[in-house]
Design a protein around this nucleic acid. Structure first.
Lengths: 125, 125
DNA sequence: TAGGTATTTAGTGAATTAGCTAAATAAGCA
DNA sequence: TGCTTATTTAGCTAATTCACTAAATACCTA
């Protein structure tokens, strides 16, 4: 949770995530789209990966990065539940998207006015 | 947008927002719930206010703070649209919640794969 | 093995952030 | 007016972040 929000606090990192919205890209391809040196981009990618927002996979000479949208959605969703309980309809929709998740809701935090409770999942209780 | 995410990057500030989820509180009441000095809390509140996430109102001796959930929802929503277009159902629900908003979607950013388009609103086009 | 490309690690300096204490401002009350 | 409470502003230090350059590592190809 903390790491997710720290990762999102940086504009270049949010842009990297947006760039990865539709397809995976190599570190070099990502760096090519920013006016920043490759080591700097590499560092941003490391922050995103530590937050669980992307994963990397080395294939041959290249390291490809792709999004892990579950963690983003779960962190934001969990937070919105805490802060803005009026948004309950969001929760239901997010649940539909996040059926396959298992643990990230714990990191995402809770305790607003009810425990995390994802309908349509079966293992919550 | 940038200010919203910077504001959310701090755990104490996220906790303050959660504390304000259900009712407004004075600066002193907020400070009383944290193990931090009042000036520090005051600074965090200033950051939250600069991001448009809370508003303050001075009444007599006290300064009361309350949430402005529209800005939070819109910023997160706009970002999710950029980064995670698969989450389109969220968008529709968020629109229902945010009927009354007018301009914050611009700050929230867009450009993922379609323009911001809130159904059920009348002024979008 | 040698040479080239891709990426990360190390190390540096400037800028920002987070918390503190002390002091200033503002409002309520005797 | 003078005292008390509530909050913010100023000024400080320690810690973190950001982007850079230079060097190291890993992989591919000849």
């Amino acid at each position: 949770m903390q790491r997710v929000f720290e990762a999102l606090a940086s504009t270049p990192r949010r842009k990297i995530l947006a760039l990865l919205a539709h397809s995976e890209l190599s570190a070099g391809e990502i760096a090519a789209r920013f006016e920043m040196t490759k080591p700097s981009i590499s560092q941003h990618l490391a922050v995103l990966e530590a937050a669980g927002l992307v994963v990397s996979e080395k294939r041959g000479q290249f390291v490809f990065y792709r999004q892990v949208s579950e963690n983003l959605i779960n962190a934001l969703h969990g937070f919105v539940q805490e802060v803005c309980p009026v948004a309950r309809p969001l929760k239901r929709e997010s649940a539909v998207l996040g059926r396959k998740r298992g643990k990230a809701a714990d990191e995402a935090g809770r305790a607003a006015d009810e425990p995390v409770d994802i309908p349509g999942r079966g293992s919550g209780r």
